[in-house]
Amino acid sequence: MRSPPPEVLASWPKPNYVDPQRRGNEGVIVQAILVVLVTAIVIIRLYARIVITRAGIGLDDAMIIISWVFAMGLTASVMLAIKRYGWDIHVWDLPPKDMVTSRMISWASMVLYMTTASLAKASILVFYLRILVAKIDKIVTKITLGVVVVYYIAAFLILCLQCRPLQHYWEILIPKSAGTCIDESIHMITSAAFNILIEIVIFLIPLRSLFALRIRTTQKVHLISLFSAGLLVIAASTVRLVYVVIIMRKSYDVSWYGYAGWLWASIEVHVSIICACVPSCRAFFVAWNRSSSKGGSKTGGPSGTYPSGAGRSYNNIEDDVMGLTDRRLGTQAMVSARSRRSESEEDSMEGTKGVTIQMEVMQFEEEYQKEVRKSRAQNSKA
């Protein structure tokens, strides 16, 4: 934290400890909405993985659960600091008795932010390793995952070692506090910028395989849209970087601008978790759409009655689908599904060239579309 020079201190108005100007409740409202939304999305993801697809809890799911726990801790600490320790007022209105506690919460919040953001990135990359089987994609994904791990360890060590002793970080405003600290602005700005670079790489990794998929244009658009949600994370991270620069380089009013900075940090990590969950949640919404369609009219369309065996729950459908959907790019697509009950295989076409990608986010929609076509064929014959 930079100490304001005398001329800046002289320009500050008289402190108002009774009724200071405040930012308002927008930050608390936004974060409360995010908590509810993220919690619901994580629950849907786990339900889809355990009940609908019966895939069980994987490493990426475990990482998201832990990331969600730290995200809730981050939100709680930021809300506490806003409501109790003056993160929504001007720095000159911050009571001296709250300055130390405010700095302690700031340090803890940075640990929570780094942990939940890194876990969300790692979860997405582990998910990539499961669905992307092209050698180049796997290599890039593994390298990026290694960079995320190294980035987290380095940022955590810098945060712990930037002041000697550590408590000098939150006691720095106490006149008689003994200790030294490095320039916080250097690693904070560098870390925020590097964080954006990692997010851009994570966003770009699957695009090559997605664009090369030989599937219907509408399906391709849907899939690319799912993975393009990462652009929201990049946007939030960029806004956060702007406020980090303002806090560290442009203004000494750290509590006033820090309010917006922490709000965007919270938005970033929560949106990251949502983006990590969206592909896995697709099976839930397809299943929900099927359940709604079963109660519709008997028209032979998506809301019509399914033929025998088509109205089974997704638990049973998952019993019939062995493995994930394989697609070979650059030639004809191959889609193979095997029934455990009938032990019969559908006709398949196998490509000879191109990159392979396993798209588990598509398998249930494909089963749904097959049943719709069968239903329409039966109704037309009738």
Score class of each variant (00 low, 15 high):
11 S>F: 07
12 W>H: 06
12 W>E: 09
12 W>I: 03
12 W>M: 11
16 N>F: 05
19 D>V: 10
23 R>L: 08
26 E>V: 15
28 V>N: 12
29 I>F: 12
30 V>E: 05
31 Q>D: 07
31 Q>L: 12
32 A>S: 15
36 V>M: 08
42 V>F: 01
46 L>C: 13
48 A>F: 07
56 G>L: 02
58 G>D: 02
62 A>W: 02
62 A>I: 01
62 A>S: 12
63 M>K: 01
65 I>Q: 03
68 W>P: 01
69 V>Y: 00
70 F>P: 04
76 A>G: 14
77 S>V: 11
77 S>D: 08
79 M>E: 11
80 L>G: 05
84 R>K: 15
85 Y>H: 15
87 W>F: 15
94 L>F: 08
94 L>V: 15
97 K>E: 12
97 K>M: 06
98 D>Q: 13
100 V>K: 11
102 S>W: 10
106 S>Q: 11
115 T>P: 01
117 A>L: 09
117 A>C: 07
119 L>A: 03
120 A>P: 00
121 K>S: 00
132 L>H: 01
133 V>M: 06
139 I>L: 07
144 T>G: 04
149 V>K: 02
150 V>G: 04
151 Y>R: 03
153 I>N: 00
153 I>D: 01
155 A>S: 13
155 A>H: 00
157 L>I: 04
160 C>T: 15
160 C>G: 08
170 W>G: 02
171 E>M: 13
173 L>K: 09
173 L>F: 09
178 A>Y: 07
181 C>Q: 05
181 C>S: 06
182 I>L: 09
188 M>F: 09
191 S>K: 03
198 I>S: 00
198 I>Y: 00
199 E>M: 04
202 I>C: 11
209 S>Y: 07
212 A>E: 15
213 L>H: 06
213 L>Y: 06
214 R>K: 14
221 V>W: 11
221 V>G: 11
222 H>S: 15
225 S>W: 07
228 S>K: 02
231 L>K: 04
231 L>S: 06
235 A>Y: 03
241 L>D: 02
243 Y>C: 03
247 I>E: 03
249 R>Y: 06
253 D>Q: 04
259 Y>C: 05
259 Y>N: 09
266 S>Y: 01
266 S>T: 14
273 I>W: 00
273 I>F: 00
280 S>H: 02
281 C>R: 03
281 C>F: 02
285 F>L: 10
288 W>K: 11
289 N>I: 07
289 N>R: 13
292 S>W: 11
292 S>H: 08
293 S>Y: 10
295 G>D: 09
296 G>C: 10
297 S>T: 14
298 K>E: 13
299 T>I: 08
301 G>W: 12
301 G>C: 10
305 T>S: 15
306 Y>D: 14
310 A>Y: 15
318 E>P: 06
319 D>M: 14
320 D>F: 09
321 V>Y: 12
321 V>T: 14
327 R>Y: 15
329 L>E: 12
333 A>C: 15
334 M>F: 10
335 V>G: 15
346 E>M: 08
357 I>G: 02
360 E>H: 08
363 Q>I: 10
364 F>V: 06
366 E>Y: 14
369 Q>L: 11
372 V>W: 05
375 S>T: 13
378 Q>E: 09
378 Q>F: 07
380 S>A: 14
381 K>C: 10
